[in-house]
Nucleic acid binder design. Sequence first.
DNA 1: CTGAAAGCGCTAACAA
DNA 2: TTGTTAGCGCTTTCAG
Lengths: 346, 346
Amino acid sequence: MTSEHSEPPSRAGRRPTMVDVARLAGVSLKTVSRVVNGEPHVQRAMADRVLAAVAELGFQRNHMASALRAGRASATIGLIIEELANPFYSTIAHVTAEMARDRDTLLLSASSEEDPVREEQLLRDLCSRRVDGLLVVPAGCDHSFLNSQVEMGIPVVFLDRPGTNIEADAVLLDNRGGARSGVRRLVADGHRRIGVLLDSVDVHTMRERLAGAQDALADAGIGYDGALVRSGVRDPATAAAAVADMLTQPNPPTAFLALNNRITVGAVQELWRRSSDAALVGFDDFELSHLMPRPLTVIGYDTRELARRAAQLLFARIDGDRSRPRTVVLPTELIERGLTAAAATA
Amino acid sequence: MTSEHSEPPSRAGRRPTMVDVARLAGVSLKTVSRVVNGEPHVQRAMADRVLAAVAELGFQRNHMASALRAGRASATIGLIIEELANPFYSTIAHVTAEMARDRDTLLLSASSEEDPVREEQLLRDLCSRRVDGLLVVPAGCDHSFLNSQVEMGIPVVFLDRPGTNIEADAVLLDNRGGARSGVRRLVADGHRRIGVLLDSVDVHTMRERLAGAQDALADAGIGYDGALVRSGVRDPATAAAAVADMLTQPNPPTAFLALNNRITVGAVQELWRRSSDAALVGFDDFELSHLMPRPLTVIGYDTRELARRAAQLLFARIDGDRSRPRTVVLPTELIERGLTAAAATA
DNA sequence: CTGAAAGCGCTAACAA
DNA sequence: TTGTTAGCGCTTTCAG
């Protein structure tokens, strides 16, 4: 009754190989290879016998052996991102996986968790698996170890942040310009005390965005106030806490700039909870941003395009493009959804 | 000046092999293998020479060749989901990738796009790459072709929906019970005309959820009205259109049940746009649901636990567990955030 | 402790 | 058109 005892007398776990198929079909190994790979110049009768044997044995070509012998790569590309569960990264993963599939290539993805050591381990692992190419949102501060890999045929394209100590393609966003236009908007609405919330200044995008914010403040002749900048904001909860804390200080900010989408979410929550009328501009748009309890002005960009361009560059390299590394910078856009103006009376 | 001309006289693209390392270090191939694999019983002096040669050549073991010869699998697990960009699936991908990493295993993920043909292609591709195991959110209606793979050592665990024509582990949600409790709540609030929006009845989860909704209606003695059920709702835009359409019919629903998170988003948007006071219960919680313009009652569950349990089952199988296939059903929970009651005067 | 030889499953040359 | 042979890069005997 149970499946343990009713199995057919199968070839006890051992996978059939082309040799097994050849033996059963009464042909040579090479003929099997030809049929399995769809090469022409095989007689119908033979091909049919081979196909029958393949079906009977449940044969499936060993991709590893095939790639090894043919000296081909693995029909796989590696993707290193910060965290797959984050919508920004999962969009990137999805777009690149789709583009890879058009080339019968699969996506091996791994999260660095923003840890340089782990990133390097993963990258080395991917190289030892002989991926065709690497797409990396870098967390580390030194990618020189990838130089030899690039030389030996594994191209690398960086995404969202440039690589360090390596000349490689990169597709980036205009982070600085985006943050600048966001702050410019707040300033135009009369804000002079703008709280800035960011993850870590170790992250390239955060540095750029912070610099952009400072550009706009400088443009407006507003002096820098360290009390208005909070770094180390890793998640919505921390962001909420930071907002709460800043609002309860003397001379609190009248507006906030959240430098990524996780931070934005936390800030929205806290402002809403306190019924605060402080203005908020967030970096990164997200699907439901227009449904937030307070309409949200965001600095948006096209994540799919970011991934698309990076994948295009990578595939061009895989196909032999040896031109000089390019850096592509994609524009950002201020998406105004009202309510940046507020009681700017401080 | 450009990097094209200043490169060191590298070994022109050819990757160094263990033979190259052995030659340079003046030892045998086997000694290199021993050192590279950290086997004991190698003299310090020799090991050091090997390591030096490895570093000088930038040698990195070819994982494919190693796995092939050793008869091991690829230290890879395959994950088939519907669409990686969907938060539900990207959470699953993330959790499984993390658990895999604890075993030095990488995740090969691909989206079936809900297409059975494509699903089978991807599954076959993954098998031919000799993944250690397969995690599948099935879209297809026949997985019998996987039976031989399971027999030959590639275990399969189904996630969210059971496989068909195959006896394999599955980790599911209590979809029927969840939908039932959602509708029961609406009925308790006085609703008798409840619009139900679902993707396709070809999808197992949708059938179950619809059945649960009908259970609750039957429990309440409310007759079935086909006009109140809309299937083929694939995305938020379609959901919005369906809501709009149903609300403009004579005798419109006073409440809606959205059978997945994409549909919920579309419904929220449309109800909000029209300032409708129709009640809404959504299947699947999502991060920002509590910040929606109308507090949202949802049928929630623990996606991470779903993935965790599935991965645990898979790894147990990979490690040799030959016990009978299990089906685990995880509970759902009605998360009430008010406002299900509305003008139930129809 | 070290090395020579065989061979994992497959494909690229060649020969028949 | 088909088959034979060699060998991809590595690990596994098993002999020194």
